[in-house]
Design a binder for these strands. Structure first.
Lengths: 232, 232
DNA sequence: CGCATACTTGACGTCATTCAAACCGTGTGG
DNA sequence: CCACACGGTTTGAATGACGTCAAGTATGCG
């Protein structure tokens, strides 16, 4: 299926938004849309000649597996996000769909050609890559020293903002996009600890759980202050 | 002081290596060299209009500070590494010199102009940025779940490789570029734990300590296997 | 209805932090 | 030259957080 940029929901926010109408058309002719359902694998670690892609709808996770078969979520990709190895000879991590998702994929060499041809695109990708770097580093900052409670509080806080329409206020009610197991993998904790700390946050009055996935934000300020606390 | 690319030790490995002789000369005319001594601050978090730079000799650390004044090392920069915010309105983290260092600095707008003018440079920076992303993610992978012992073993293993002339064999003897406190900050541990685990590694026969900073690698294979172990 | 999957909760053990004290190499002043 | 203080480091003992193991509770699906 070829691309239909005209109706693309991320046409103004994805990397390709910096292209002129003609340039976009040229790039689009090299791309293909792809749909993934929950749990489906987009790239596998070790794949050679991986493609790259812009996420249009849904959500992806970037996952590392260590020797024990344990998995660790390294990043989440949201719509308009770009994913793919442009330089390494093979993919380093698995990329898996968290929900039903829709993407525009490009062969690596087509994208390389586009980068050389359109300087603005290279800039846009560089910018995105640096943003990814920042978010990886803030995750690092969080996981390195923070207590289980802070990590979880911070994650819920982030999700509340991501789920909100307005960029500055958190949504007061939303569904967690991840299972307990995925949250645990993301924060470097166990399922049991995540569950326990969720109970604690509820007891403290910061949140209320609504079913398995639903979260109601009762005291965002408390949540924020908890997210800054370290050990002790 | 203006740049002397001819004698630059990283002229073939830094981002500017992709430029032609003329292009390099043009970029060089916009750059300045700068020397830092140990502990000196290159950029501070919150700085607006930060410059960017290529590290020529020495080493830098990228540091985040949390509310309690605790610091966390997010990344190390080695010679030929590139550092600087090209897009964010202000710097997110402090950048501090670990040893006496030498850099080529560029005003942000000069670098932006160069990116637009030389597509190869944009590609080179994109590549570097993705490498930084990978190293941030592998640090994440490490700090999230690994025991103190594994983290330390992995770090020593990395330093042994970084200190080696050949890229595939570790140096059998080298100096740690960081103090115990910096190691602790980097791994999300305390000074005491780092010290204890160094003792343990020595007791096990993986390494031998030579003075405060010196490390002799007795059993690289053991070290590597320890670096893969998790809790339990 | 029965089974599977996800989640919650409790008891217990392990590991890293915390607090405290001692150690070592270096530089300073008597 | 020695005493002394100082920063970086090592080591010990006690506390507490999180993991492990295990049992129990939804929720959904065939």
């Amino acid at each position: 299926m070829s691309l239909a940029c005209a109706e693309c929901p991320v046409r103004d926010s994805a990397a390709c938004a910096v292209l002129s109408e003609e340039e976009r058309k040229a790039l689009a002719s090299a791309g293909r849309t792809r749909k993934l359902s929950r749990g489906e694998l987009l790239f596998a670690a070790g794949d050679t000649d991986t493609a790259c892609a812009t996420l249009v709808t849904g959500a992806l996770k970037v996952v590392a597996h260590n020797v024990d078969g344990n998995e660790q979520i390294l990043a989440l990709i949201h719509p308009s996000g770009f994913i793919g190895e442009m330089f390494a000879p093979f993919a380093q991590h698995d990329v898996v769909s968290l929900t039903d998702s829709q993407l525009c994929t490009f062969a690596r060499k087509d994208m390389e050609r586009a980068i050389d041809e359109y300087p603005a695109l290279a800039r846009a990708l560089l910018r995105r890559s640096q943003e990814d770097l920042h978010s990886a580093r803030s995750m690092l900052e969080r996981t390195a020293r923070a207590s289980a409670e802070s990590r979880l509080a911070a994650l819920i806080h982030d999700f509340a903002h991501a789920a909100s329409d307005s960029p500055c206020h958190p949504a007061s009610q939303f569904d967690l996009p991840l299972t307990r197991g995925e949250i645990a993998n993301m924060l470097g904790l166990t399922i049991e600890t995540v569950s326990r700390k969720l109970s604690d946050l509820e007891k403290m009055g910061a949140i209320r759980r609504k079913g398995k996935r639903g979260i109601e934000l009762l005291d965002p300020a408390l949540l924020l202050s908890l997210s800054r606390k370290e050990f002790g």
